[in-house]
Amino acid sequence: MTGNFVGTGAIFRRELAAYFATPVAYVFIVGFLLLAGVSTFYVGGLLERGQADLRPFFQSHPWLYVVLMPAVAMRLWAEERRAGTIELLLTLPVDLGAVVVGKFLAAWAFTAVALALTAPVWLTVNALGHPDNGVALAGYVGSLLMAGGYLAVCGALSALTRNQVVAFVLGVVACLLLTVAGSPIVLDAVAGWAPRALIDAVAGFSVLTRFAAIMDGVIDLRDVVFFASLIALALFANALVVDLRKGVG
C-alpha cells in the first residue's frame, strides 16, 4: 500500500507543476479573479447593498464554476491520450486508482489556490464592517466542495476523448445540468408527469440548492455527504472510463 501512496504523491506533484509550467494557470487565475470581482461588485453590488457579508461574492460561484472547472479538468486525461503518455503512465507500477486520485487532487489544489487568491474580497468586507466570519468560512468550504464535485465529473469526461475542446464542452454541459437540477426550468419539465419521489430526487441533485444553504452559514452533514459521494462516484467512473478506453487510440 505504501508504494501506491508514493505513486499518488508523485502524480499529484507532477500534475500541479504542469498547471504552472505553461501560462494557462496564470490566465485562468486572472480570469477567475476578474470574473469573480465583476460579479461581486457590479452584478452583486457588494458595496451598494450596505451589508457586511460575502453573499454577492459566493452566489456567483456555481455559475463561474460551470465554465471554469471544465477548463481546469479538461486536460487531465485528454492530453495524456493525445500525447500517448497514457501508455507510459499506466505501465508504471501504480494502481489506476492512485493515478486518478492524484490527478484529481492536483486539479482541486490548483482551484484552492485560485480561490485563496480571492482573499482581498474577504479583507474588503472586514475593513468596511463586521461580517460573520464563520459564515464566510462556511462559504469558502462549500465553494471548494462544490468545485471538487465539478472537477471530478469533468475529469471523468476528459477520459472519454483525446480532444481537450470536446472534454471542455462535455464538462460545461454536465456542470450546467448539475447546477440547475433543482431550478424551476428543470423541475417544471419533470413535474407534469413524474411521481413526487422522482421530482425530489432530481431536485436533490441540485448543487445550487445545496450551495444556497451553505452560503447562509449552515454546513449540513447531508450536503457534505452529497459532494463527497459525487466526487467518489465520479472518480470511480473516471477509472472505469480510462480502463475501458485505453486501447482506443
Binding site: G7, A10, A18, T22, G84, E87, L88, V94
Partner: peptide
C-alpha cells in the same frame, strides 16, 4: 512505448525525477 512519449513541458531532469518517485 512507440514514439517515445514524454511530457513536453517538463525538463528531462524533472521527468526522470517524476518517474523515479513513482517507482519509489
Amino acid at each position: 512505448p512507440e514514439g517515445a512519449p514524454t511530457y513536453p513541458d517538463m525538463t528531462p531532469l524533472a521527468f526522470l525525477e517524476f518517474v523515479a518517485r513513482v517507482r519509489g
